[in-house]
Simulated assay, not measured.
Amino acid sequence: MGLQEVWFILIAVLFTGYFVLEGFDFGVGMHMPILGRGRGEVADTRRRVLLNTIGPVWDGNEVWLITAGGALFAAFPEWYATLFSGFYLPLLLILLALIVRVCAIEWRGKIDDPKWRRRCDMGIIFGSWVPAVLWGVAFANIVRGVAINADKKYIGGFFDLLNPYALHGGITTALVFALHGAVFLALKTSGEVRRDAVALARRLAIPTVVVAGSFVLWTQLAYGKGWTWILVIAAAAALLAVVALTSVEREGWAFVFTTVAIAATIVLLFASLFPNVMPSTLDPAWSLTIENASSSAYTLKVMTWAAVVMTPVVLVYQGWTYWVFRQRISTDHIPKSIGLKLGAK
């Protein structure tokens, strides 16, 4: 195995980690209007519970995307250039949504005003739903292939990216992240919020199995390889296990299996893509591969040594963060805001 294959695998690992960790962050934000329902103090307290479940970790989870993007730029610059120029509008929308989400989470409690908090909540919802859908659309198009010419440039339009397979991918990631987030909230909360999260996870489980199961099957039949049937079976079995586990309120194991389902699906996408990194639908000879899109051997060697040194440090630190903040949260742990104490409207 050469360094090009190693870095293709490492980028797949980074995106898998991002979607597993940021996936439940998106799910929490997507559920703000459902699990954060109510009026006045009740709604505000429930929404603060939801945000506190991801409060210590959400920004660390986003680092996986930054690292994946940096690794993509350094290891496969041609892939990075074609991807970010060709998918400019959807990736810009993802970036805009993530910025809105960051600002909304960070600034929500800075002004003690109910209207301000509602606007921030809308920003969190927007910043969670948009990436949850568009990441699926983007990765489905990468696997399917796009109109790349001999100069390694994407010559299609935005609406060419909205094909049936890609839209199916977007619905799949949205549903899977919503289920992942609901199970995470059931695992991290107690009391009424936990009961509602468990009930929501039960309602989401079966439609997620149907939509995600059909997407991975479509991917396998159209783009997969013989050995990737293992990943299809793993993803399907994991989702079926989530259906059973949510019905008996075993949210810990359910979270393990939503993680397995996401990981198996992302690995399936990358495995179906290999050795291409962006197939061309115009001429297979114009496809970007791990060979014609990669950096020099020296660059890959330097990057490999940096990854060997730094990756264990990052993993240990992030694992320690999750361990420290492992306790459940309930509405009893949330103090009243000053404005509500004073009877602000």
Rank of each mutant, 00 (worst) to 15 (best):
G2T: 09
V6L: 07
I9L: 09
L14T: 11
F15H: 13
G27M: 02
V28G: 01
I34M: 07
L35M: 07
V42K: 14
N52C: 11
T53E: 10
G55Q: 14
V63G: 03
T67A: 13
L72I: 08
A75I: 03
P77F: 10
E78Q: 14
Y80H: 14
L83Q: 07
S85Y: 14
L93G: 01
L95H: 07
L96K: 04
A104P: 05
I111H: 05
I125Q: 12
V130F: 10
P131D: 12
I142Q: 10
V143L: 12
G145D: 10
A147R: 15
I148L: 06
D151I: 12
D151P: 10
A166Q: 04
G169Q: 03
T173H: 09
H180K: 06
G181Y: 03
V183W: 00
A186F: 02
A186P: 00
T189N: 02
L200P: 00
R202E: 12
A205C: 03
A205M: 05
V210Y: 11
F215T: 05
F215P: 00
W218V: 11
T219K: 01
Q220C: 05
G226S: 14
L231Y: 02
A237C: 14
A238R: 00
L245D: 10
L245V: 14
V248F: 08
W253M: 08
F255P: 01
F257K: 00
V260A: 07
A264T: 04
V267M: 05
F274Y: 15
A285T: 15
W286G: 08
E291C: 01
S294L: 00
A297L: 06
K301D: 12
M303S: 02
R328C: 02
D332T: 09
H333V: 04
